[in-house]
Design a protein around this nucleic acid. Structure first.
Lengths: 114, 114
DNA sequence: AAAGAGTTTCGTTATAAAACGAAATGTTAA
DNA sequence: TTAACATTTCGTTTTATAACGAAACTCTTT
């Protein structure tokens, strides 16, 4: 079904989901860190993460109170591997730097520090 | 702007637009041929074509009464070139055969002949 | 100049997606 | 076991997308 094939593109059509992928490529993050990074409601972030997980872009792992999300190192779909290994080609290479407990990121020419 | 970068994925998130790209890779087509192929209203096809053209996937050329659409052979955006040259990788390789004046195509396991 | 064919634009409707807050669920630590 | 925190689910609202038909536009032919 071609409808099924569009899902990968749908997952990549939202700027916040692209930001999440980018951020996760620098560091494993939990929902609350991503919430701070993107300034979105918890439930909204959760929804984006479930879409990315559903498609195989990311993995989740429980760590006590937190649930850590990370880039899937071995996606079964070669298209996902391809996108993940060439993400800068598709969406550019603006910095998303996450240092220590602080998250410093440059999104759309705006520096956000949380 | 990351919002801008999502446009290429948005353009590819619709199954009918993917069918159009696939069909155009086999043959130059006018709107009315694509309409028959996809069984959509003229205005709907026109809208899809304008999105694909806007993003640089396809070109249009007037030919008398008709407007022919074709795959852009030299897109300025390398991402477009990449998608176009590896389309089967992204969406599979079901046949879309266009012979003579008849269009015979196999979409989602259904043979359509117009 | 008028008729006819192909295409686009416009206005509308229906469906899908993104966002939020509140409530529910699960986990750790007092 | 309760309190506090992290996350998800649910219900709702807003916004975006896909589709259509009718009307407008363009080009060709008579």
């Amino acid at each position: 079904m071609l409808e099924e094939k569009t899902k990968i593109f749908k997952a990549l059509s939202d700027p916040n989901r692209l930001r999440i992928l980018k951020a996760l490529q620098t560091k494993v993050l939990c929902v609350c860190e991503i919430r701070e990074l993107l300034q979105l409601a918890n439930s909204t972030v959760s929804q984006h993460l479930s879409i990315l997980k559903e498609e195989g872009f990311i993995l989740e792992e429980k760590a006590g109170k937190w649930i850590n999300y990370s880039i899937n190192p071995r996606p079964s779909d070669p298209r996902i591997s391809s996108i993940l290994s060439t993400l800068d080609f598709w969406i550019g290479d603006e910095n998303v730097i996450i240092a220590d407990k602080k998250i410093i990121c440059c999104l759309d020419r705006k520096l956000i520090c949380c």
